[in-house]
């Protein structure tokens, strides 16, 4: 909150120093400025919807890809490596373009902008999630598996009740990072026309010719969003830790 207020203050202070600023485009006290501001802020809806849908899918897919990577079977491990290496090497922007323009003619599927964005973001992130889960699960002591084995738990129950609850607590900071990363990367989906924060700002710039003010608002929008989300992740970490604390 302190950071945000300092930045706001600086912006307003600097704007006073220059004749080039024209805050009227987003001034809530005049009618068109208020309409513009509302238009910009409405981009939050798809930014949030896109990012959270994608992260949910990528966490699930990441876990499903991580588990074969820990298997004794070399073919399953190979599948994990191939998936991670291929997906990780494609830039997100390229993946977005490929899913939106390439996938429909190739498969005959109709895909709208939103789902193309979700598929691309989730796919790209799942490779990183898989690596995070693999590291988290590997960090759990061998004795935990042996104890589970000795009380007759099968593989599924061992993972569900013993290993994953501990692994997830450990990787929570990394998962939080991925969420922040996802929120930022969702701006790339603007190139295929998704009406999220960045796309809205771009459209307004085209009609108002005021890039300086509008993109400054865009920066502040992302900043506010990410500060709130980070605080939320930290709160969750504290809450889960307090379960175990002495």
């Amino acid at each position: 909150m302190k950071k945000l207020s300092v930045l706001l203050f600086l912006t307003l202070f600097l704007s006073g120093c220059s004749d080039n600023w024209g805050w009227y485009v987003v001034n809530p006290y005049n009618k068109s400025g208020w309409v513009n501001l509302k238009f910009l802020i409405s981009g939050y809806y798809f930014t949030l919807l896109l990012s959270f849908t994608s992260i949910l899918i990528s966490v699930a897919v990441g876990l499903l890809v991580a588990l074969p990577g820990l298997s004794k079977n070399p073919w399953l491990r190979k599948f994990n490596r191939v998936y991670v290496e291929i997906v990780r090497s494609v830039p997100i922007l390229v993946l977005i373009l490929w899913v939106y323009y390439g996938l429909p003619p190739m498969t005959g599927l109709e895909i709208n902008v939103f789902w193309a964005g979700v598929v691309a973001l989730a796919l790209s992130d799942s490779a990183f999630q898989a690596e995070i889960f693999r590291a988290g699960i590997q960090s759990i002591d061998k004795g935990q598996y042996e104890a589970s084995h000795s009380i007759s738990l099968n593989y599924r129950d061992t993972m569900r009740f013993v290993i994953l609850p501990q692994a997830i607590r450990r990787i929570l900071p990394a998962l939080g990072n991925q969420l922040v990363y996802m929120l930022k990367m969702s701006s790339l989906v603007s190139v295929i026309g998704m009406q999220e924060l960045t796309r809205k700002a771009n459209e307004l710039v085209v009609t108002e010719y005021r890039p300086l003010e509008i993109y400054t608002i865009l920066v502040l929008e992302y900043l506010a969003l990410i500060l709130v989300v980070s605080a939320g992740v930290r709160w969750l970490e504290r809450r889960l830790k307090s379960d175990e604390r002495v």
Binding site: D141, G143, Q144, E146, A147, H149, S150, I151, S152, F161, V162, P165, Q166, R169, D243, E244
Partner: peptide
């Protein structure tokens, strides 16, 4: 066999969570 045999470990191996 597992359901018939219990085991106690040197490092206890309790579930910390």
């Amino acid at each position: 066999i597992r359901s018939r045999v219990g085991m106690v470990f040197q490092q206890f191996n309790l579930f910390p969570h």
